[in-house]
Design a protein around this nucleic acid. Sequence first.
DNA 1: GTGGTACCGTCACGCTTGTTACGTAACGAC
DNA 2: GTCGTTACGTAACAAGCGTGACGGTACCAC
Lengths: 200, 200
Amino acid sequence: MPRHVDHDQRRGEMSQAVWRVVRERGLEGLTMRSVAAAADCTTGRVAHYFSDKNALLTHARDVMHRRMAARIDALPPQPDARARLRAVLLEGLPLDDDRVLGSTVWAHFLLAARTDPELRAQHTVRHESWVRRLTGLLRDVYADAGTPPPDDLDVRVRALVACLDGLALSAVATPDAYPPELVARVIDKQLELTCGGVEA
Amino acid sequence: MPRHVDHDQRRGEMSQAVWRVVRERGLEGLTMRSVAAAADCTTGRVAHYFSDKNALLTHARDVMHRRMAARIDALPPQPDARARLRAVLLEGLPLDDDRVLGSTVWAHFLLAARTDPELRAQHTVRHESWVRRLTGLLRDVYADAGTPPPDDLDVRVRALVACLDGLALSAVATPDAYPPELVARVIDKQLELTCGGVEA
DNA sequence: GTGGTACCGTCACGCTTGTTACGTAACGAC
DNA sequence: GTCGTTACGTAACAAGCGTGACGGTACCAC
């Protein structure tokens, strides 16, 4: 075996460079050269680890998604179902630099999905799984209170998710107008509205 | 005066061409050449009416915004405050082809605003005016019912707007997963949650 | 007619893009 | 050592970009 480097690590570094470029210049400002510059190397190295610009993007997106999923899985245990739901919601919002980066990448890929069938299919799968997760958590809230879940549970979750998405978008696009404190207050209100009179 | 053509009309035609290109290829697929092709003319003509690519984009965005504002102003009178609020909300959602186009352009410019200070400033102004408009409408709902508006009126409106934005984004990015019927059902639920027990 | 001006098609320039080819240096196997 | 493979910097390429120059053509005033 000749000279060896850790491929996964290198690819990870370059994915981070992709995120940084997307944050600073958007998806349209993302070029092989800008990624190389952000990763402090030449385009030759980037080309060596990714066959394609598309492969580079896909990898960056997948790593980001795995990272976000891991954050949610690593959430500390909560006292009750409602706190659990709240913690997951907050984790999905861009409330610190790291998650601003995540939401930014998410937003750009979401918009790109509009004209790209493959991106669209992948987004739909993940979105539905996200909706299912929140549905389960909301159901737990009702179970905790000993109340049967309402018939409109699904629509309530959709409204909650839409609110979350809209907030994330605003926080990402105009962070000055939507500081973390406001975002948290709005999602708490939405949570209160969603859970209706349960445990109130 | 030599041969005369209606400048505003020509510019309007080209703005429509811009919208179509944005819909089909996104903001990054929008080039002078693609706009010219969509407007079925040469780049020479486009250059004749717009000094710049930026001027072209700005005009297209402004015309779209005026168009949307006009739609809302032209809304037929509604029986009560709640119906009025609902009508305005529905008008802001991409429920037909025309508004899908509008929301698509909105979403692209919103994301672009993230890295463009001027776009961001303009978006913030319009967003706040939109929030104020909805706040007034929601206040009317309470006034209609003879109930004093709740203290959390502002946060409720923010949640409503976020929900609207998130729905619009989903409907634009993945229309198959968010057909108009579902979108309308979700916003009706959100409206119901927002108005609390008023008139219920 | 006959300017003269608005309209706009054509084309070339310089720049940036993704991709590919090529050269060289580093390093493990033998 | 030396050889083969991996790593990766450099550079060239065609394609596509925004922009500006140039020229022709259609129309109105006179």
